[in-house]
Structure formats: structure tokens, C-alpha cells
């Protein structure tokens, strides 16, 4: 009796006749269309993610909150300038890393190598995001520390003095608000990022794990 799988193979070949056929012109039109591949998506989304933390400075309220005048009167201006310098150099480093890894992605690799390279490229962006989120926490932390050590908080923040506010009490309230805002903001950014990351790479990770399981 003929092996069942040979039967299937024969049938598979027979079914070739039922396949659609495209003309030269149809194929020719296709090759100049825009790709909608995962790698293209990853490229654009990563670029947005690199820019996003810097776009925050375009918001007037954010710029005011981080403004150097307030920082100066709190005595943390030098520290903030230093942190900003660190942030920009690290960002530059990650952009270079990202570009290098992105260039290494090749559809001519084996499936496993291709997946591995995409995951590595995406991980570079993830490390950058984790860095940015930590920086946001550090920035807020510096501000809170500045407030804690401020001698004249009401003056520094340009608040209208109200006779009945206890300066010490006010200090704790402002620190509490800053702390809560910092955590909430970081959590929000992290939430949006990991949702996006998960959606983009869910299928990729599943298939990568499947290949790795075969090697186990």
C-alpha cells in the first residue's frame, strides 16, 4: 500500500493546478508598493519612541514645571543641567545602537536568526525606554529633594503667600503632589509602551519560543 504521506505529497503537487496565476504586469506593479512588514512598523514606532520623551518639552506646562528659574531658586539647577546632558548622550548612544541592529536585520537569514535580530533591535528600544522612565523618576526625585531642602518654598515657587498656610505643611503637600504626579506619569508611559511592545511582538515571540523549544 502506498505510504499515506506519499499520497498527500502527490495530492499536494496535483493541487498546484488550482493555484492562482499572476501576470508579469501584476507582479511588476506589486514590487513597487509599500511594504507593511513588521520591521517597517518597528522602525517607525521606535523612532517615535525615541522622540516621545523629548516631545514632552514642547508642552508649555511641562516646560514650565522643569523651568530652570524654579530649579535655580531651589538650588538644583546645576544638577538638572548635568542630568539633561547625561540624558542626551545616552539617547544618542541608543539611537546609534538601534540603527546598527536595525541594519543587521535580513530576510535572508534563517527564521530563527531573523527573529533573534528583530528581538535584539526591539530590546535596544526597550532598554532606552526603561532608561527614560528612570530618568523621569530621577528628575521628579531631584525636584522633591530640592523642595525638601528649600528655605523659602513659597518664594521659590512664586506662590502667593497666604496668611494661614503653615510653610512646613505646604512643603509636605507640594512634595506629595510631585511624588504622586511623578509615579503616575511614569506608570502611564510604561503602560502605553509595554502595550505597544506586546502588540508588536506577540506573534514573533510565540514563534521564536516554538523554535527554541525544538532545540531543547
Amino acid at each position: 500500500m502506498l505510504d499515506e504521506l506519499e499520497l498527500l505529497k502527490k495530492d499536494w503537487k496535483r493541487r498546484e493546478h488550482d493555484l492562482p496565476r499572476l501576470s508579469f504586469d501584476q507582479i511588476h506593479r506589486m514590487i513597487w508598493k509599500k511594504s507593511s512588514s513588521l520591521v517597517r512598523w518597528i522602525f517607525f514606532i521606535s523612532i517615535i519612541e525615541f522622540l516621545a520623551p523629548h516631545l514632552l518639552y514642547l508642552l508649555p506646562s511641562f516646560r514650565e514645571g522643569m523651568n530652570y528659574e524654579v530649579a535655580d531658586s531651589l538650588g538644583i539647577k546645576a544638577l538638572l543641567i548635568g542630568l539633561t546632558a547625561v540624558q542626551y548622550s545616552v539617547t544618542l548612544f541608543y539611537i546609534v545602537q538601534f540603527y546598527k541592529r536595525y541594519q543587521e536585520i535580513s530576510v535572508l537569514d534563517s527564521a530563527k536568526a531573523l527573529m533573534n535580530r528583530i528581538i535584539r533591535t526591539r530590546k535596544t528600544v526597550m532598554h532606552y525606554i526603561v532608561f527614560c522612565l528612570s530618568m523621569i523618576i530621577v528628575f521628579f526625585g531631584v525636584f522633591i529633594a530640592g523642595i525638601f531642602f528649600a528655605d523659602d518654598l513659597v518664594g521659590s515657587l512664586h506662590l502667593h503667600e497666604q496668611a494661614n498656610t503653615d510653610p512646613q505643611h505646604l512643603k509636605w503637600v507640594v512634595m506629595g503632589i510631585m511624588g504622586a504626579a511623578g509615579l503616575l506619569f511614569t506608570a502611564l508611559m510604561a503602560g502605553v509602551y509595554f502595550l505597544l511592545y506586546g502588540l508588536l511582538t506577540r506573534k514573533l515571540y510565540r514563534n521564536y519560543q516554538e523554535l527554541k523549544r525544538m532545540e531543547a
Binding site: 512588514s37 530576510v107 535572508l108 527564521a111 531573523l114 510565540r206 514563534n207
Partner: peptide, 23 residues
């Protein structure tokens, strides 16, 4: 050469896959 590129595209690069879990 085509087998490799075609499969890599179908497995890894193609975004619009079916929603149902394939595991």
C-alpha cells in the same frame, strides 16, 4: 532562495495574521 524569503515573510514579517491563537 525563494523558500527562505517567502517563509520568513509569512512567519515573521507579515503583520496581519488571524486573530485566533495559533498555539
Amino acid at each position: 532562495w525563494m523558500y527562505r524569503v517567502a517563509l520568513n515573510t509569512a512567519i515573521t514579517l507579515y503583520r496581519k495574521s488571524k486573530k485566533q491563537p495559533r498555539t
